[in-house]
């Protein structure tokens, strides 16, 4: 067990190191220099550009730059090129904004998908199964931004509530209950949108897992014992079908930092995705690289976590 953890951690660290190199190279080898952020801006005289280059070590060779950058990152001193603010602080602020979206979206995804998938699998081929199947394909196929606009039109014309942004501007005077309702309305649409793809994919996956397990011999054994159908489906079949999903808990982790660029920019939600998008537009490399690094850490931590969880729930795997 310990040797597995040790090996796994070392492997993940090596991968992380390589990811840091690759992402650094992608950014720096691409044409265009960050010092030319805005050549038309009259404030950017050659001297200022030169000073800028010096301040951010851009005059040094690439490997030295790499060293400086990750030293700063690991000691938490990275600053944005755009406004000289601490990158980690910026990310933290935006992270707090994205967090409610993430939590509500994940809750919706995981609470809705399972009942839908399981019911579709048990009533295989029936009208419920077929309609949820088609609906799932529809939701997977619909472009997120298009769906967003349909929902906006629907909600705005139907309920006459504003939904863009995190809250309605200038609502200071309103009562607390009003404020809360306003926040909920603003939160609801983007999180529902963020969850649609997840619900569609996850419920299909639950269904196929459940179908696979329902055709196993041990389910037949359970029936032959004379167990009631609830016990056959929800104890014997479900317990086995759930095994792969335990590993997916670990894979939620990267979603913490992802945020959806498209949804956040449609709803003017000042979250992580928007920040990354703006950083890309401004070629603010420290922000881009830091977001990338943190998300790689989360991906690796997530896979590590799911391996561990799998070890715990599947009695067949013993180290």
């Amino acid at each position: 067990m310990l040797s597995f953890i040790g090996r796994s951690v070392i492997q993940k660290l090596v991968t992380l190191f390589l990811v840091s190199i690759v992402s650094f190279l992608i950014i720096h080898i691409a044409p265009g220099e960050p010092s030319q952020v805005n050549p038309l801006n009259p404030k950017f005289t050659p001297e200022i550009v030169e000073r800028f280059r010096k301040a951010f070590h851009l005059d040094k060779p690439l490997h030295v730059q790499y060293f400086y950058f990750y030293k700063d990152l690991l000691t938490g001193k990275t600053t944005s090129w755009k406004d000289n603010q601490s990158v980690l602080k910026k990310i933290w602020e935006r992270f707090l904004n994205s967090l409610p979206l993430f939590i509500v979206g994940t809750l919706i995804t995981w609470t809705i998908s399972f009942p839908i998938g399981i019911r579709a699998a048990i009533a295989r081929g029936g009208i419920y199964d077929r309609s949820t199947t088609f609906l799932a394909y529809l939701l997977i196929s619909i472009p997120g931004f298009f769906f967003a606009y349909i929902l906006i039109i629907f909600v705005v014309t139907r309920f006459h509530v504003p939904v863009i942004g995190m809250e309605t501007f200038g609502l200071r005077e309103a009562t607390t209950i009003h404020m809360i309702m306003d926040r909920i309305w603003h939160l609801l649409l983007p999180s529902v949108l963020g969850a649609t793809g997840g619900v569609a994919i996850l419920s299909r996956y639950v269904r196929s897992q459940m179908l696979e397990v329902e055709s196993q011999d041990y389910v037949r054994t359970a029936k032959a014992k004379g167990l009631p159908p609830e016990q056959v489906h929800y104890k014997h079949a479900l317990r086995n079908a759930l095994l792969p999903f335990v590993t997916m808990f670990g894979l939620i982790l990267p979603g913490l930092i992802g945020g959806s660029v498209i949804i956040e920019s449609i709803f003017s939600w000042p979250g992580m995705g928007r920040m990354a998008y703006e950083a890309i537009l401004a070629r603010d490399y420290p922000v881009i690289l830091t977001v990338n690094f943190i998300s790689a850490v989360l991906v690796l931590a997530g896979t590590f976590l799911s391996d561990l969880l799998y070890l715990m729930v599947d009695p067949r795997i013993r180290l």
């Binding site: 041990y218 054994t221 014997h236 067949r316």
Partner: peptide, 8 residues
Amino acid sequence: MTSLNPVF
């Protein structure tokens, strides 16, 4: 091999 439920 397959008729017994592996997780119980």
